[in-house]
Design a protein around this nucleic acid. Structure first.
Length: 842
RNA sequence: GCCGGAGUGGCGGAAUUGGCAGACGCAAGGGACUUAAAAUCCCUCGGGGGAAACCCCGCACGGGUUCGAAUCCCGUCUCCGGCACCA
């Protein structure tokens, strides 16, 4: 054994050994003897190289997988590539490389990086979503959904990203910007394919309360996204016509205050009533968060509550996609309506007064803004004086009784638009025939493969539309001339079911019911919180479709979810040259101009801010074990992690100290024979305590940072020991073996190496997780804390397990306490859990 | 604006159920070894007072409940995340 710890050498050695043993170490088969555990990390987009976010994500997952293997589970721990998407196509436009080529190069490089990190994946299940054998099943799912009416086509206003020149789903727009490139999104009317996720909205909502293993934050985000609200649909007759306008409101209690009606610009009656040119102008402002624009139609509607005649407007801020596309406007109690009323000089009628706010004494017109809270009804006929909550029910009932409306539930969630006007995605398997319309490609003709003869110009319509060999086809139904759909699928379709594909090996058929039945659901899913509504909601939807296709009994794909925090690093800025790399700011001065630099905030690592750490460089300098250890030690997984070079060195120091301990004691330790003696010693006690703590910290919320801290404490004790005699050495060896076992999921290479060094023959991977004995972990003496009036006055060592009365007596006799209580009246004495005594005096 | 979450040393972070605030690590200071440096090892390390024993203050801020509060309740401030014309 070398004196120096050389990570590069030993890590490559063990990675080679593991690769040979892959069949029996990291691979998983359907097994009846062991319970299964499916551990999954979000698969990466093959962008070129892995980044520190991946390192952290996969280190967390790997510790869980390795730990569970040691606990005797049949662990499924797969990895693959989310390999369709825009960057590949953009590279093609910029550099002329084919997206497939670019993607496969990246995959092969990144796979090497993952292997180099010592991650224990079952590569026999590796998948790449851009391969026809994978996306064939996207097409298969699409056809099944088409047959069931879940996939359908409609024209609507959609989110269009001008920079990506494609459509985005609602979930993919953040603050009006594209989730990927941050360009402002515009509204465009297009015919698109949608998946009817709204069919499952109530089920998804109801089931979210059962997601006990998920961060509540994520559950809440999903619930808000689905956005259920209960209200009333009320019918407003159009004066002098048979037309009726249906509005949705959650505030039936304000119905008597409705002073006008607003229609969405795309509402059928808006087109019927409004003058086309004027309507077109309103439409220009649709979906934009700017000023409110209205157009009076010249028509009036009848308020079903009081038969009042109120004007009908078309307004840019009314959404066609939510509710009924028409609203009743109550300017006194809705801020938007208030602003609209102000602009167009419409009346404001107060029908809700603040609870307890003087009978009839309040002002009629709110001062400058609407009163939107609940209160007491005013000026509302027979309902005047009721509280809002009660009035909502009563007025809804009243309207229902008149046959002028009904209580309904509305959701904010929209159907998922999956059409993308790009090349590098799954072709939508539809053929358009003049006679038969949209016809699905028959299953036997799948996959519809992406054509190769495509030019990547970055301009115009879908690149697929340029490929005649692709577009021209025959109708599967009538054999006549037909054209293929040229849009591809949103890449979130690919990732909505990949965890199901992993249940079968590459060489086994996809979607095998037996395999799915054995491995699903995922027991632990680990990934970034940025997918809280996107990928995670789509997957919950897809799993239900898969269930309803009879392929699985599972509804929820992910039993437990861990959302890890971001990896952050300090930023450095020069007042003149902007963001700098640390190497450009040595000595606190900008390397370009010599001006002093500003230490910026610690922010998420990003290339643009130049605050990134390259995993390759990190591994080369410190090794994979150190990279993993630091990622896990510096913060609990759900927190953001602040990268620190010094912290990395600290992590490596720990590994080096373990190494040095084994090296320095190797001869003595190797000669040890037999078990440690019965009876307690500080080291034996500490060892059992450490196993207890580490086990508990991993089991409970995966708090690896405190688990590692506990192992460090054990090492500190071991290193301070000066053994004399065989019994001491036996204990030392016992403690060391357990320490190595506990370290092995975190730093698998060095654990293997040291395990071998102390004479163990089989791989440490195959060892069970060490057990502990609570009795052996128990302290014989405890430090009794004595407080007077809640303040610590002294501490004393006493035997473990004394009765409370005895503790109180002992406390009272202590000189320090005598002194503190002398001349005072003792009111009460508390003893707490055999650990603390509090004396209350006056 | 609405809905969540979080504020603990110079820093990252510990602290089962209300019961010793600051585990572990980083940084810093001192010392040992060395011709010297690195590495390593040892000691100190929340603030204030005191020669010391020890005392006072301290978990964003202000109140409260309690024998006892980082932990529970109310209010305020700050930061982070989500949603945002959703009727």
């Amino acid at each position: 054994m070398k004196k120096r710890y050389e990570p590069g050498e030993i890590e490559l050695k063990w990675q080679a050994i593991w690769a040979k043993k892959e069949e029996n170490i990291f691979s998983s088969r359907v097994s009846n003897t062991k319970p299964k555990f499916y551990c999954l990390e979000m698969f990466p987009y093959p962008s070129g190289k892995i980044h520190m976010g991946h390192v952290r994500n996969y280190a967390i997952g790997d510790v869980i997988a390795r730990y569970k293997r040691m606990r005797g589970y049949n662990v499924l721990h797969p990895m693959g590539w989310d390999s369709f998407g825009l960057p590949a196509e953009n590279a093609a436009i910029k550099e002329g490389v084919h997206p497939a080529h670019w993607t496969h190069e990246n995959i092969s490089y990144m796979k090497k990086q993952l292997v180099r990190l010592g991650l224990s994946y079952d590569w026999s299940r590796e998948l790449a979503t851009c391969l026809p054998e994978y996306y064939r099943w996207n097409q298969w799912f699409f056809i099944k959904m088409f047959e069931k009416g879940i996939a359908y086509r409609k024209a609507s206003f959609v989110n269009w990203c001008p920079s990506c020149s494609t459509v985005l789903a609602n979930e993919q727009v953040t603050e009006g910007r594209c989730w990927r490139c941050e360009s402002m999104v515009v509204q465009k009317e297009l015919v698109q394919w949608f998946l009817r996720i709204t069919d499952y909205q109530q089920e998804l909502l109801d089931a979210s309360d059962g997601l006990a293993g998920w961060p509540q934050k994520v559950v809440l985000m999903q619930k808000n996204w689905i956005g259920r609200s209960e209200g009333l649909e009320a019918i407003f007759r159009v004066d002098g016509s048979d037309d009726r306008i249906i509005v949705f409101t959650t505030r039936a209690d304000t119905l008597f205050g409705a002073k006008f009606i607003c229609l969405a610009p795309a509402h059928p009656l808006a087109e019927k009533f409004a003058e086309p040119d004027a309507l077109a102008k309103i439409r220009e402002h649709y979906g934009k968060a700017d000023e409110k624009h209205g157009l009076f139609t010249g028509r009036y509607a009848i308020n079903p509550a009081n038969d009042e005649k109120i004007p009908i407007y078309v307004a840019n801020f009314v959404l066609m996609e939510y509710g009924t596309g028409a609203i009743m406007s109550v300017p006194a109690h809705d801020q938007r309506d208030f602003e609209f009323a102000q602009k167009y000089g419409l009346p404001v009628k107060v029908v809700i007064r603040p609870d307890g706010g003087g009978e009839g004494g309040g002002e009629d017109v709110p001062a400058g803004k609407a009163f939107e809270e609940d209160g007491v009804l005013a000026d509302s006929g027979q309902f005047t004086g009721l509280a809002s909550a009660e009035a909502r029910q009563k007025i809804s009932g009243f309207i229902e009784g008149k046959g002028m409306g009904r209580r309904v539930v509305n959701y904010r969630l929209r159907d998922w638009g999956i059409s993308r006007q790009r090349y590098w995605g799954t072709p939508i398997p539809i053929v358009y025939c003049e006679r038969c319309g949209a016809v699905p490609v028959p299953e036997k003709d799948l996959p519809v493969v992406l054509p190769e003869d495509v030019k990547f110009t970055g301009k115009g319509a879908s690149p697929l539309a340029e490929s005649e060999s692709f577009v021209d086809t025959v109708c599967p139904s009538c054999g006549g001339k037909a054209r293929r759909e040229t849009d591809t699928m949103d890449t979130f379709v690919d990732s909505s079911w990949y965890y199901v594909r992993y249940c079968s090996r590459k060489d086994e058929p996809a979607l095998d019911k037996g395999n799915i039945g054995y491995f699903m659901p995922v027991d632990q899913y680990v990934g970034g919180v940025e997918h809280a509504v996107l990928h995670l909601l789509y997957s919950r939807f897809f799993m239900r479709v898969i269930r309803d296709l009879g392929l699985s009994n599972v509804s929820e794909p992910f039993q437990r979810l861990l959302t890890q925090g971001m990896v952050c690093m300090e930023t450095i800025k020069c007042p003149e040259h902007g963001w700098l790399y640390p190497s450009e700011a040595e000595g606190g001065a900008c390397a370009k101009c010599g001006r002093p630099v500003e230490r910026g905030r610690t922010e998420k690592m990003s290339k643009s801010k130049r605050n990134v750490v390259d995993p390759d460089h990190l591994i080369k300098t410190y090794g994979a074990d150190t990279a993993r250890l630091f990622s896990l030690f510096a913060a609990p997984p759900e927190n953001d992690l602040q990268w620190s070079e010094k912290g990395v060195e600290g992590a490596q120091r720990f590994i080096q100290r373990v190494w040095a301990f084994v090296h320095d004691n190797l001869e003595k330790l190797a000669a040890v024979k037999g078990q440690p003696p019965e009876g307690k010693s500080p080291l034996m006690r500490k060892t059992h305590q450490t196993i207890m703590r580490v086990t508990r910290d991993i089991e409970r919320e995966y708090h690896f940072n405190t688990a590692i801290a506990a192992m460090m404490e054990l090492l500190n004790m071991l290193a301070a020991l000066e053994p004399s005699g065989q019994d001491d050495l036996r204990q030392m060896r016992f403690a060391l073996e357990r320490l190595l076992l506990m370290i092995s999921p975190f730093c698998p290479h060095v654990a293997e190496e040291l395990w071998e060094a102390i004479g163990m023959i089989s791989s440490i991977q195959l060892e069970p997780w060490p057990g502990y004995d609570e009795e052996a972990a128990r302290e014989e003496e405890i430090e009794l804390v004595i407080q007077v009036n809640g303040k610590v006055r002294t501490k004393v060592m006493v035997p473990q397990g004394l009765p409370d009365e005895e503790l109180k007596n002992r406390a009272m006799t202590l000189p320090r306490i005598q002194e503190a209580v002398s001349g005072k009246q003792i009111i009460n004495v508390f003893a707490v859990k055999g650990r603390l005594v509090n004396i209350v005096v006056k």
